[in-house]
Amino acid sequence: MHLLRFIVGRLVVYALVIVFALTVLFFVPRLGPTDPVEAMLAKVSSQGAYMDAAQVDALRRSLADTFGLNGSLLEQYWAFIKRIVFTGDFGPSLSMYPTPVMELIWNALPWTFGLLLTSTLIAWVLGNFVGLLSGWRPNANSSRIMEGIAICLYPIPYYILALVLSILFSYVWRIFPLTTTIRGAPWSWELVSSIVWNSFLPAMSIVIVVFGWWVISVKAQTSALKEEEFARYARLKGLGDGRILTRYILPNALLPQITFLALQIGLMFNGSLITEILFDYPGLGLLIYTAVLQGDFNLLMGTISLSVIAVATATMIIDLIYPLLDPRIRHR
């Protein structure tokens, strides 16, 4: 019962957070010093399209429409929320007219998800492994060296690392492709290998940084946990190092990581956006960038809203998982 109440409580908070996020998204275009419609018109005409007054007027009206600038503020707000929450419809893309924005997003999402998920997973597993081992003997030379390397890697932003990697491996030594070009028939081996080949550098830039983080934090946790009384007791029971590590220290080290992950998802997402742009990787980040460059407002609003909602959802899900895994909260 306690658990149920907790879950319902979290879900309510989640709904409120989403509404809050959408409210922010609604007000951002209205906060600025410039009128987004005029800015967009200026952008379109600066790109060399010649329009007479009537055309400009028509465009202005249709833009006001897509911006949701018709009616009173309250009406606009309601229309905005309704459109996103209930229909999930962001209209057609202006730059790739008439493809619906949602379709573009659905095409891009698997790339972003795949990139983030595989790379964080790899980094997480490796980082835990190395962190656990070096935390077990925190003062051994190899542990100190590992931590030193991790400390030098973790603070670097993804996109900087992405830049460094692309400078090194695409310009200086031409090993990996500069930009992403995927080819091959669906489900063919060529396609798979081309995806792996092209995703390698963007993924590495995420893996390396995230790996650094896990090494640092897991090492600190492990070296603290192994001095805990329950770990000492396990040793007095004559259990071997391997068993103490896997059954006593690892579970206790893994739990707090979940909360941490919830806090980091936003930052990780931020980083991956820029990485995608730098590598021309066909994910959400590149789509956002295209939208910005092309002044495609529908696409922009759609991609940004979706990113915000996705990150908030991921955070909330992780937040919900935590108490299910921790018996101290599960059975109270």
């Binding site: 908070v13 409120l16 957070v17 809050f20 996020a21 922010v24 998204l25 951002v28 275009p29 906060l31 600025g32 010093p33 410039t34 987004p36 800015a39 200026a42 952008k43 806090l263 936003g266 930052l267 997402f269 931020n270 956006l273 820029i274 956002i288 939208a291 910005v292 002044g295 922009l300 609003m301 991609t303 940004i304 990113s307 915000v308 990150v311 908030a312 955070t315 909330m316």
Partner: peptide, 25 residues
Amino acid sequence: SFFMDALLCIPSLPILILMAALFGG
């Protein structure tokens, strides 16, 4: 606490990009 939680859930960069795109690039 609600505002803290909510703001922690919202990724900042997309919002900044949106603002940049709308406020003249």
